[in-house]
Design a protein around this nucleic acid. Structure first.
Lengths: 195, 195
DNA sequence: TCTTGTCCCGACCGATCGTTCGGTTACTCT
DNA sequence: AGAGTAACCGAACGATCGGTCGGGACAAGA
């Protein structure tokens, strides 16, 4: 365990800066020049910490995926009635999305132009499929309405959750807290908007 | 009214090709070389039909926005109880999103890197605000649950609707039709997933 | 004080970016 | 047949892309 002798960048702290810029301008719309200006070091110095632009993307995406798949390992997501497990996954996914906001945002926006991006998309699909199984089971248990296709319902549910990255900004003191948003998501998704 | 003498590109038919590529690779990830290959004509020939890459984006976004704002002009969106108008806008937005899928997809993905993109984002916000007013009114009427903030509810609703562009593909014969999807969206959003 | 290794820099690389230009082909009209 | 023009092309433009390179500044251990 070595403490940094002067305050300098680590791959992690550089990643935090890079991810912010990626999310503002889009990954393809961000040049290494943009990153260097945002980080306050020269373009070539970035290569001292990371191998290149795509590694920054890979690191960010890995962090997001680790957070999401971690949810599926939690006891509340593995034991009990399917509909309860689904509610837990819904709430926790919303929470992870907000605590790891910039990383998950990046994950949700990859288009599949490189191997790294295609791998990210495949892992995301894996996660979605696991939740879709949960929905299917809950329908079979008679806990979810059977008149909406399970696959479609899963997609709409994730659509609602994932859209949080489009507007949630943790800084806003007056805005909703993570808990309040998670409550609203679970309530809206399961009970609906109407009275 | 002049008919094309040989089958050649018009700005509109070229736009259709370009938008497909934009959606596959992302706007910034698409080069004019990519477009020329997809269109089957040379890179320089594209400039005979349109002024440049950004004009293609502007044309596509305009088409999407026209479709969306057209909904707000429909009689069912202007007269009657707020909650009924909201349901109509929800259904019609879902439908327009699916019929104009590639154009709306592009609209939903702009990041604000150019004037054109910032204009698109501003217009989108205008649309969202008009719907948010509808939600607010429906809550005041006592037709929507008051325990979820109107602004938040609007965002979740649009999140659900807009996420359709991530998976809906009109070609699939076996998949859900536009009507079925619109039904499911309205039902899920207003009545919830649970029985 | 001298070496070692971390951290960073300016200069530069070949490739690719969006765009322009001069010219050729192919069709329509007279 | 000849003129006019819409559609297209290859070659090249300056700018910028992601990435490399040799070396300088600085701190820690000897």
């Amino acid at each position: 365990m070595t403490m940094p002798k002067r305050d300098t960048y680590t791959p992690e702290s550089l990643l935090a800066v890079a991810v912010e810029v990626f999310n503002e301008r889009g990954y393809d719309g961000t040049s290494m020049e943009h990153l260097s200006r945002a980080a306050g070091i020269s373009k070539s110095s970035i290569y001292h910490h990371v191998k290149g632009k795509e590694e920054l993307l890979r690191l960010a995406i890995s962090r997001a995926l680790d957070g999401l798949f971690g949810i599926l390992q939690e006891p509340e997501a593995r034991d009990g009635r399917a509909v309860e497990r689904l509610e837990h996954v819904t709430r926790r996914t919303t929470e992870v999305l907000m605590t790891e906001l910039p990383y998950v945002t990046l994950l949700l926006r990859v288009r599949g132009n490189t191997d790294t991006e295609r791998w990210a998309m495949a892992r995301r699909r894996d996660f979605d499929h696991e939740v879709a199984e949960l929905v299917k089971q809950a329908v079979a248990d008679g806990d979810l309405r059977p008149d909406v296709d399970a696959r479609l319902a899963t997609r709409l549910l994730f659509g609602m959750i994932n859209s949080i990255v489009e507007w949630y900004r943790p800084s806003r003191g007056g805005a909703a807290t993570a808990d309040e948003v998670a409550d609203a998501v679970v309530r809206t998704a399961f009970a609906g908007l109407r009275i």
